[in-house]
Amino acid sequence: MKDQLGKVYRAIGLPRLIISLFLLALIFVALGTELSVADLLSDSLVRVGMNGIFVLAMVPSIQAGVGLNFGLPVGVICGIVGTLIAMELSLIGFGGFFVALGLAIPLAIISGYLYSLLLNRVVGQEMMVGTYVGFSVVAGMCIFWLLAPFKNPAMIWAIGGSGLRVTLTLADNFAGVLNSSLAFKFLGLNIPTGLLLMLGLVSFLLWLFFRSKPGVAMEVVGRNPRFAIASGLQLNTYRSLGVVLSTVLGAVGYVVYAQSFGFVQLYMAPLMMAFPAVAAVLIGGASTKEATVLQALIGVVLFQTLLTVAMPVTNQLIQGNISEIARVIVSNGMILYALTRTTGGEQA
């Protein structure tokens, strides 16, 4: 019995145990307030679905030995461009959604490859360099948003008539197409079936990839580059593949995120998008060297539920807007914690 418990404990790991217990405590507290727990959990499901693919995007880069993909905004920008073009063409419903994806993915492949060429030149510094690549790309794209030749009057500034607005609504295009499809109510919870199916599908494909020959090769490259060379593998090829996959997932993740959110936010909005995803995958038990699809999923559930539940509950209990501060402390603290340890896996 004791052995069994020990095994379970080791499999879960202390950080996840603490966070889960904290989460449960918050939900109990919420029960005692006038907040609707069902609504909180429904919101959590939506946020898990919205952010899940961003978190999955961390897995290929970690497994290829590049580390956490702090340059996720590179993929996000591709997703934004795809979405914007679909909007410019006034496409609606699933048509718009798939056109946005269809445009975003090739863009992400190209930009991901270019980004990987840079990362392959800075081996050992990828995470640091990636962070600044993300920042630079977001800043650089600000000029593009101003100069891009979009003509749809719903998208450009009303006065002056050129340059994209800061926040665009997707309400007339494909806002909520996934969230509302096949959605049903269960015990007072709104289940966004389409959104969760999308996350499930992407997770399954990624899991399948890591069981294929190139996926196995990528793992070997990440785990022991010298063994990989001795087995005739080209390190840079698989590192690039990992970065491209991660960037593509970032782009797909954005389109899914945008349809759920209902808005596209431009200019400096994508700047910090990598950080919640990084924090989530680390909370899930990944390290900078090892990550699995399951860890990403566990991580996004814990992290997003915590945020969704913690904010209103703390607002109820404490006057003033402490919850936003708490969120920043939790997510950045988690990143700090995980980056200082190299082991990960079972001990993380």
């Binding site: 020959k213 196995v216 090769a217 785990r223 022991n224 010298r226 063994f227 001795a230 087995s231 005739g232």
Partner: peptide, 21 residues
């Protein structure tokens, strides 16, 4: 350093090179 992927299982270590080449 070169001969093994230490974090991987015995089975995977045995087949990795053959699988890839």
């Amino acid at each position: 350093g070169v001969g093994l992927v230490l974090e991987d299982s015995i089975a995977n270590n045995i087949v990795l090179t053959s699988m890839q080449t």
